[in-house]
Design a protein around this nucleic acid. Structure first.
Length: 419
DNA sequence: AAGACAGCCAACCGCAGATCC
DNA sequence: GGGATCTGCGGTTGGCTGTCT
């Protein structure tokens, strides 16, 4: 792993690019492509190193770049993605067409971080600053004790008893899918978290797709990301998503616009006209399920999460098969699932956020509407993140850590809007 | 008007994985 | 198999610009 050879070359220009240099580089790449970057400067007649040429092309000259200020939606999306990915600027940039990692990184460091802090949110953890401070104190006090607990709980399946002892509901989905850590943060005097960690622990081998949900701004899109996670395509080409929603919601695929199913290989969705969202069900049916059962993700939203109708809400969740790695085959270990891959298939949803004030997620193998007519409390909704924080003191988990455990998947999300 | 300061952003640096030979 | 090279990434820097005093 030697250093780039250009680093040793002398008499190479550095600093800002002149219009003449830009023109030379642009002409060369337009005509011949960049090929090997190290040969570009010589061929293009530039006194620059290949690395510098590459950077200039990627960040400035590339024709597909979107110039200008970031939109509010873009900012919100960056915040959400950062909550999930951390400082993976290239991966974040991959989700924002026409934007470069450098551009996003600069925006984050110069603007978004400041805005988050002004809103009392720690830009690193996406948690309330007060919460972060108290956690730091708490972790300093009980570091050893907590470490023992973490290794115990993350080493295997989700520990329902432990969750319950921490004050959370042990409500258990069918197929052993766990969700809804519930806690009354008001009664417990816990500040509502501004982000959520949602976990699902599924033992069913036929449930092996991942889906995340983001409702990041009112009257704009919601992104869904779905990814067949299985290393050997356990969920086959006939993998199908079925959606059951309220009347105003329309789900369609990117490719066919047909409602309620994807084309065999398409796992990218558009969800349109998704208004007055209260509940929906997305079920995934693998054609080669071992037991023939279906799986579903169900979403609900009819809660008073934010009183301010302009507030945005965002959530992300994942579901997956714990048994994939537990079955001894070793072929479907979750370590193989990269978040970057997971993030590559977006589908969007237009939404009227005025009625979306809270979220509720449920995972069940049964395809059914979840909305039970009862407004979910803010307390319940807010508890997911709190649960994880209490459950696992490893608050500095890195993204890779979050997805490296075979039985325990977590996704953070950010709630709030910037304007 | 001018110096200080802050914000922004293009570009550089160093590292590490991938690929080549 | 191993060193050399290429590529890409994230962190950092430095200069330009606008604002404040």
């Amino acid at each position: 792993m030697g250093r780039h050879s250009c680093c040793y070359k002398q008499k190479l220009r550095k600093g800002l690019w002149s219009p003449e240099e830009d023109e030379k580089l642009m002409k060369h790449i337009t005509k011949f492509g960049h090929g090997c970057w190290s040969s570009v400067p010589k061929l293009a007649g530039l006194q620059r190193c290949g690395k510098s040429c590459r950077l200039r092309w990627i960040n400035y000259l590339r024709p597909d770049l979107k110039r200008g200020t970031f939109s509010q939606d873009e900012e919100n999306l960056i915040i959400e993605l950062h909550a999930v990915l951390g400082n993976k600027w290239s991966q974040i940039a991959a989700r924002l067409p026409g934007r470069t990692d450098n551009e996003i990184k600069n925006l984050w460091n110069s603007s978004i971080k400041k805005k988050l802090r002004q809103r009392g949110i720690d830009p690193n953890t996406h948690k309330p600053l007060s919460e972060v401070e108290s956690e730091e104190k708490a972790s300093a006090n009980s570091n050893n004790k907590n470490n023992d607990k973490v290794s115990e709980s993350s080493n295997n399946e989700f520990n329902f008893v432990e969750a319950h002892e921490n004050g959370f509901s042990t409500e258990k989905g069918i197929n052993n899918m766990e969700r809804y850590p519930l806690i009354d943060h008001q009664a417990n005097n816990i500040a509502p978290p501004t982000h959520e960690f949602f976990t699902a622990n599924c033992k069913s081998p036929d449930l092996s797709s991942y889906l995340s949900f983001h409702n990041y701004s009112p009257n704009t899109n919601i992104l869904f990301n779905t990814k067949n996670s299985s290393a050997d395509n356990m969920v086959s080409d006939h993998h199908q998503f079925n959606c059951s929603t309220l009347p105003n919601a329309t789900f369609s695929t990117m490719s066919s616009n047909s409602i309620l199913s994807t084309s065999p290989l398409a796992r990218t969705f558009n969800i349109n006209k998704f208004q007055n969202w209260e509940a929906c069900t997305i079920s995934s049916n693998g054609s080669n399920n071992s037991n023939g059962s279906s799986n579903s993700i169900e979403l609900q939203s009819n809660c008073s999460f934010f009183d301010n109708s302009n507030a945005a809400a965002a959530a992300a969740f994942t579901w997956g098969s714990a048994s994939a790695a537990a079955d001894g085959s070793g072929k479907q270990e979750r370590e193989e699932i990269k978040w970057s891959e997971y993030m590559q298939t977006p589908f969007s949803l237009g939404v009227n956020n005025n009625t979306i004030q809270n979220h509720h997620h449920e995972i069940s193998p049964h395809h059914q509407d979840l909305y039970d007519g009862e407004t979910k409390s803010e307390t319940q909704f807010m508890t997911h993140g709190t649960w994880l924080q209490n459950q696992t003191p490893q608050t500095s988990l890195q993204t890779a850590d979050l997805y490296s455990n075979n039985n325990f998947q977590r996704l953070p999300a950010v709630f709030g809007q910037f304007s």
